[in-house]
Simulated assay, not measured.
Amino acid sequence: MYLCLLSAFALSQAYRTVTSIIAAGLQADFGISPDSLGAFAGLFGLSFGVTQLLMGIGMDLYGLRRTVLVAFPLAGLGAAVSALAPGYGWLMVGQLLIGVGCSPAFLACTVFVSRHFPAQRFAFFSGVGMGVGGLGLLFTGTPLAWMVQHGGWRAGFAVLAVFSLLSWLLIFLRVHEPALAQAAQGPRESWVQAAGRFGSLLKVPHTWGIPILGMTCYAAFLTLRGLWLGPLLMGRYGFSLIDSGNVALVLSMLALFVPAAFGRMDPGPTRRRRWITHFSLLMGSLFLLLAFWHHATANVALIFLMGLLSGYGVLQYADVRSSYPAEMTGRALSLYTMSMFLGVALMQSLTGLLAAWAQRHGHEPYQAVMVSIACMLAAASTAFRFLPRSPLLGRGAA
């Protein structure tokens, strides 16, 4: 069942990174500016993040299977709308549908792990899931680049629509949950009551540092991989679309293995937060190097190093899992996932605006993008380090 749920997550990974390969085609067909391109990419994260609250409540009330089966068809519909889009406005409609449809995909996987595996193995199995989900990133590397070069960007969306239908059928046929023992649990909560339980998380002092860092760490890597990788390599160094796709493919292959590796290296709750802070600051330093070190081979090496480091995100999920009592875990994971994708929307839109501003003033847009990402990582890491931590983590977590 876990692998079937991961098929939807893999497609979600493909959808959220498709822009870096199709960006040139969209700009050629519709004359999209850098800020409009950033808004297009960011709309996935915005619609994905905003609907996390509803998806989390849906999973609590109706289960993982029903929630995914109801929402995920919207992703396939959005891909079909995008493939047929006559203009930029319809592209945005398609992106909105895709984001909503994909929104329960990874949350369902993390909730499944939290319910079916022991807490001390949460980081490892979450890492395995993130690695398997990385198969979707492989598609948006060389395969998508080849497809776009020979058949256009619309063909990529059409193939994703077909894959989405197959994934939905797989989940429908293979994923089954035990019937809820409603009599034992008492009356089912209303949506208002369930939403109130989510709101109670914001009253917990140690909650605030978690989403602040969550809004930046994943967003930083995804903004590079999903939006600026292709434009950077083609615009700064004259890479071809296939060359950029090859770099994306290698980066995606790294993403298959590093989350499980970081999950296996998990130092435990007392030292995990310190590790997360250091890895986040290191990632920010790599973005600064990418901004100012203009050398093609060195930049590709830095990008691959970022890919190796990106797996530390699984430690953040483990930190959320350890920071709350069992009855709050589902809500906390949902809130954290929501913060991640709202951060993606914010960062991709903001970097698009900064790139357009830099271009208008005669500066290199990619340098402005990378510096801004590095600054956001540094600020969020500092907040995470000094804001209150959960009393459940022990003294060594500071």
Rank of each mutant, 00 (worst) to 15 (best):
P178T: 06
G394Y: 11
V81P: 07
M130Q: 03
V300N: 05
L254C: 10
I98C: 04
L286H: 12
Y62P: 05
I57A: 01
A83E: 09
Q95K: 15
S390Q: 00
P231Q: 01
A219P: 10
R271L: 08
A184V: 03
M340P: 13
S12K: 13
F30E: 13
S381M: 05
L169T: 05
T382I: 05
A71W: 07
L232S: 09
M130L: 07
S36L: 14
G186C: 09
L224I: 12
L61R: 13
P143M: 05
I21C: 13
W153D: 10
L54R: 09
G31Q: 11
R236M: 11
P259K: 06
A398K: 07
L350M: 13
S339P: 11
L135M: 04
L43W: 06
S12L: 14
M283A: 14
A378M: 12
S36T: 14
M59C: 06
M347V: 06
C102V: 08
P325W: 08
G45S: 09
F9C: 01
R395D: 15
S33H: 12
G152L: 14
A291E: 10
G63T: 08
L233I: 11
Y15S: 14
L144H: 08
L342D: 14
G58A: 07
D319S: 10
H150V: 14
A219G: 05
G235N: 12
A80M: 15
V70T: 03
R174K: 15
W275T: 00
R360Y: 14
F117Y: 12
M328F: 12
I21F: 00
M55H: 09
S322A: 15
D29M: 10
S381A: 13
P231M: 12
L333C: 04
T270A: 15
A355N: 01
L74H: 08
G186N: 02
L170G: 11
Y336A: 07
E189M: 00
M253V: 06
